[in-house]
Amino acid sequence: MLIAVPAETQAHEKRVAATPETVGKFIAAGCKVVVERGAGHEARFTDAAYEKAGARLAESFRDTCGDADLILKVRALSGVELNDVSSGTAVASLVSPFTNPLLQDYAKAGLACFAMEMVPRISRAQSMDVLSSQANIAGYKAVLLAMEHYGRFMPMLMTAAGTVQPAKVLILGAGVAGLQAIATARRMGATVEVFDVRAAAKEQVESLGAKFVEVESEQDAEDAGGYAKEMDDDYKRRQSELVAKHVAKSDIIITTALIPGRPAPVLITEEMVKSMKPGSVIVDLAVEMGGNCPLSEMDQVVEKYGVMLVGVGNIPALMATDASQLYARNLYNFIAPMLEAETGKLQINLDDEVIEASLICQGGELLKSQLLGAEVK
């Protein structure tokens, strides 16, 4: 089987879908691998390293992917790239399934597309979970971005000239990104408060040394996949009142709240931003889905009412080497069980719940018609 690894073309995307390490593993499993020249450059993986691992280099996307049986990417195929891919090819990548307008086109082109965002959160699939591996990086880097734009110390300092109080950090959302942000901010000496609609997150938050802020409710705020659900209007009102009190006291806020298939919930209103101290910082990790703060701007750092709003859309790409290593291992762990031992061919078994959940189209048919809802249109 021929596996293709093209260069990413989306703006600000520095990651690559395979590293010399995973290329070597695929070749050891009986596959051939072709890598587009320069594909790993931004992530600091050289063409020579890929060649040493056994890959062949190609000069363009068409030369890389035109004859491939399987394409490994970070971002979904673009409309231009789709023209150079043959019917029957399998593609594994992040697809943005709820917002990507090309899903029908992938199906019509005869592709077998795996959306890595849709790998189920079950024990067997933990090593394939790209959302978690990349969110871990985003949570860590978010704290560093906040420190860059916050003009004061994070830890408490006791000096001859007086005591400097530690920064007060508020983290909204205690998923993978939020938990890593807690751990990082605590290591930097900040005092940390955390809000999450899921009461089950309290134990994890407190184990990291942060204070858990919650709105009492009898509603189940967690779906079957472990993600936060959208709450009713009464909960949202009480949530907004509670969050507003903590926002006004915070020096740094990191927002991570996302609901799959929906725009990011607004957690920090314009009035809340006005209540913050001059020089405070908000890092909005949900900016790609509209933002948890309506004042955030995609891929911009802006100042509003004396508050710095950091709206970097693709934070994992700022740490492209480690992000690529983790993502590439996720892909290898996802693909390896489908490789037939004797022939190295890809066997797509829809009786496997991991494959069934993540395969969005095959044989000219869109298998997840629910993705063509209002969000896509």
Rank of each mutant, 00 (worst) to 15 (best):
L2P: 03
L2W: 02
V5T: 06
A7K: 14
Q10E: 15
A11T: 15
T19I: 03
T22A: 04
V23R: 02
K25A: 05
F26L: 06
K32Q: 15
T46D: 14
G54E: 08
A55F: 06
E59F: 05
F61E: 08
D63A: 03
T64I: 10
T64Q: 09
G66H: 08
G66K: 09
D69H: 12
L72Y: 00
L72D: 04
K73N: 02
R75Q: 09
V80W: 06
E81T: 03
E81A: 01
N83H: 02
S86N: 14
V95S: 03
V95H: 04
P97E: 12
F98P: 00
F98K: 00
L103V: 10
L103F: 13
Q104I: 11
C113V: 15
C113W: 05
F114N: 04
V119T: 12
Q126T: 07
D129K: 08
L131W: 12
S133T: 14
I137S: 04
K141P: 08
L145F: 12
L145Y: 13
H149R: 05
G151C: 10
R152V: 05
M158K: 12
M158L: 11
M158E: 09
A160E: 05
G162M: 11
A174G: 07
V176A: 00
A177L: 04
G178M: 02
R186S: 05
G189H: 11
A190D: 02
V197Q: 08
K202N: 09
V205E: 12
E206Q: 14
F212I: 01
V213R: 10
E214N: 11
V215R: 13
Y227C: 11
K229F: 00
D232K: 07
D234F: 13
D234M: 13
E241K: 14
L242Y: 15
V243H: 13
D251R: 10
A257C: 15
L258E: 07
I259L: 13
P263F: 05
P263T: 06
L267I: 03
L267H: 01
L267M: 04
L267F: 00
T269W: 03
E270A: 05
V273S: 04
K274C: 07
S275D: 09
I282G: 07
A286R: 02
A286Y: 04
V287G: 08
E288V: 15
M289S: 11
M289I: 14
N292A: 09
M298T: 15
M298Q: 12
M298A: 15
D299Y: 14
V302W: 14
K304I: 10
G306K: 11
M308N: 08
G311L: 02
I315D: 01
T321Y: 07
D322S: 12
N330Y: 09
L331R: 11
L339H: 09
A341N: 14
A341C: 14
K345C: 12
K345Q: 11
L346H: 07
L350V: 07
D351S: 07
D351H: 05
V354Y: 06
C361I: 08
Q370E: 14
